[in-house]
Design a protein around this nucleic acid. Structure first.
Lengths: 123, 123
DNA sequence: ATTTAGTTACGAATAGATTCGTAGATTAAA
DNA sequence: TTTAATCTACGAATCTATTCGTAACTAAAT
């Protein structure tokens, strides 16, 4: 399955976070960030349906759309591609760049270290 | 400064890793992965020069090109944008996804843990 | 039945990135 | 000086994603 385009990803994020939705609801959410025409959103969601990224069921005169791909799978796939193109395929280079950045919050560092500790216990 | 496009990034990677180069050398390198015409590579490098991504100096009848932006800065900028679009802006979510993935090598985990240990000592 | 509001389907316009053909310029060699 | 090889500059073609106008359709309200 091909990766979603940027505009498609925005729509997927909305569906993943707020659940199955009508075009109107998705468009409203998108408009909170930047103005975008209703038919633009509709068109992209129709394309996504053709591609197999979304499914839909009829509801009155409109449709309710839902994602056919999992958020985690998509993130993994996008991440792999990103690491290949920007970090020469090295996962650790990316992580080190992140861990070394000044603007990573303490809370974020906390949850990372905690994850590693729990992983140690597993063994 | 706007982020480089995918094709531009490929060229930057080559210049960062093998140093200042002529179009010919860059194109040869690119062709190791996929066939691409000489004038295609030339055109993109000319555009990059207009944009201020590359500089160049005359050498005989050709030019020697060099990056005007740092690899680390570019990676940081691309990464920020990527995290915003694919991980809702959460750095830790991305790291956890990576650390939890099955195909991260032991060597990579090693260098990550080592980095965290050294960071602890700093305090 | 007619009107109205909301929705869909379709196709075209736009925009940006990528690709490459061609013509002209430059350099080195014969 | 002429030729050959290489390189640059330019513009056009292509491709993909995005945007939106318009017309047709649907359902509900009057």
């Amino acid at each position: 399955m091909a990766n979603p385009t940027p505009a498609e990803l925005e729509i997927l994020q909305i569906l993943w976070s707020q659940g199955d939705s009508k075009v109107q609801a998705v468009n409203d959410k998108l408009c909170e960030q930047k103005p975008v025409g209703y038919t633009t959103t509709l068109k992209i969601m129709q394309i996504m349906t053709e591609k197999g990224l979304l499914g839909r069921k009829k509801d009155g005169k409109s449709h309710i759309y839902y994602p056919l791909i999992k958020q985690g799978d998509t993130q993994t796939s996008l991440l792999d591609k990103f690491i290949a193109s920007a970090f020469g395929g090295s996962k650790s280079k990316l992580v080190l760049q992140l861990l070394g950045s000044k603007d990573i919050s303490k809370k974020e560092m906390q949850s990372i270290k905690q994850f590693l500790e729990e992983q140690e216990k597993q063994k």
